[in-house]
Design a protein around this nucleic acid. Structure first.
Lengths: 229, 229
DNA sequence: ACCTGAACACCGTTCAAGT
DNA sequence: ACCTGAACACCGTTCAAGT
């Protein structure tokens, strides 16, 4: 495509991110990445001696760097009582924004065994905010688990349409679902009715995410103040 | 291996689960599953007309059935004020037990787009418990997101060793980490010291899971009682 | 009906060879 | 040094053929 000026590791990773964004993780092949760069698949191995594993790790590093970049130009932290909550909250929201931009990232993270140093640095940052904010290491440790699993787990669409390929469910299917899943059907009905603008989708996962985030942060701050943990 | 009596869909799925348990998702190939059954890969297509996608969906159904089975022989629910919390808690713990037995399940769930009917039935069950327990549909909806993301996100080992293949980190590596990640290093030190039996691992993820679960359930019950949402 | 052998298109990866 | 063509082992899948 573009005049192939100097193939570099970074150019390969950028192409891989673009390919995954466009076509998903399953389409991310060495040959596909190479094609996007107007080059043969075998050329990539010169810049990624660790082979495809190194490419996948590199993808995680790119995502981690995007989270770090989003946090880089934030105003310095306040330091009143409980101010850590807002700081941690902002970090979780930044991470989520990046995950939404790269929906392949959570499955990729989940599929790989080790933790990348760049991801450790993100944890370190949150950990520092909490400890300086008066949280014990024990409480901070638990927060990392709670918040980490939420940031990584929240991409999944909970109530996506069945397994079909159709965009629209037929009336018959809807009725069959209502019979088999009465509570679910009632919930959908209640939520759709409550939603102001149905075109936005009744399941506003950003709102859901922030609700859960605040539930966790509130509980953690209460635990800190109570001196438990 | 075993005398190949009547290849069936269920026998194929059982073999696939066993293969994934033993060797992981990446090793789950049509040829591999067939080999475990002493049969040619092409034979599988007769029992799984939907091809490998149907096999993967079938794996999810097996996991969902295991969760349902674990819940089937529970004593009937109490119905005091707030009794729904214990019921939902038990369901989340059952789901987690199954996920731990099949660590390939959360990545698989995350990688597939639609929600299987069997999984919808599990949601429906939790939803019913909450609504009968006095939760609004709105609150119950948020609970599904919060709890679902936790159950699916909590398999990931948060502080697994870097990207190396060595089981032990060298002293030099540990020191390098301590320098780059002071808060993380201090947290590990504090937690290892606090742990009674270091051979159990300082990062007891069952305890972490239950802590987060109770944080969420506590917040949800407080919201219900307060009549918010 | 159920199973199989050969074959096709596609992977990741190696290696000897080009410039 | 960087890139490539041919090749190998392995996938998912098709299809015509066996029983």
């Amino acid at each position: 495509m573009a005049a192939t000026r100097a193939l570099t590791r970074d150019r390969v990773l950028d192409a891989a991110v673009a390919l995954a964004d466009d076509d998903g993780l399953a389409a991310l092949t060495m040959r596909g990445v190479a094609a996007r760069l107007g080059v043969e698949a075998m050329s990539l191995y010169h810049h990624l001696p660790g082979k495809k594993d190194e490419l996948l790790d590199g993808l995680i590093d790119v995502v981690a760097a995007q989270v770090a970049a989003a946090l880089a130009d934030r105003p310095p932290a306040e330091d009143g009582e409980g101010a850590w909550v807002a700081e941690v909250r902002a970090r979780c929201l930044a991470a989520r924004t990046v995950m939404l931009a790269h929906p392949w990232a959570p499955p990729l993270l989940a599929s790989r065994s080790g933790i990348r140093p760049a991801v450790f640095q993100l944890y370190e940052d949150v950990l520092g905010v909490m400890v300086r904010g008066g949280c014990s290491y024990h409480l901070a440790h638990r927060a990392m688990h709670a918040l980490g699993s939420m940031v990584l787990g929240f991409t999944q669409e909970l109530f996506a349409p069945g397994g079909g390929d159709d965009a629209e469910a037929t009336e018959a299917e809807t009725e069959a679902m209502a019979a088999a899943l009465p509570y679910t059907a009632a919930m959908v009905a209640a939520e759709v009715h409550a939603a102001g603008d149905p075109t936005l989708g009744w399941c506003d996962s950003q709102t859901e995410f922030e609700f859960t985030l605040d539930l966790l942060l509130g509980g953690l701050e209460r635990a800190r103040v109570a001196g438990r943990l």
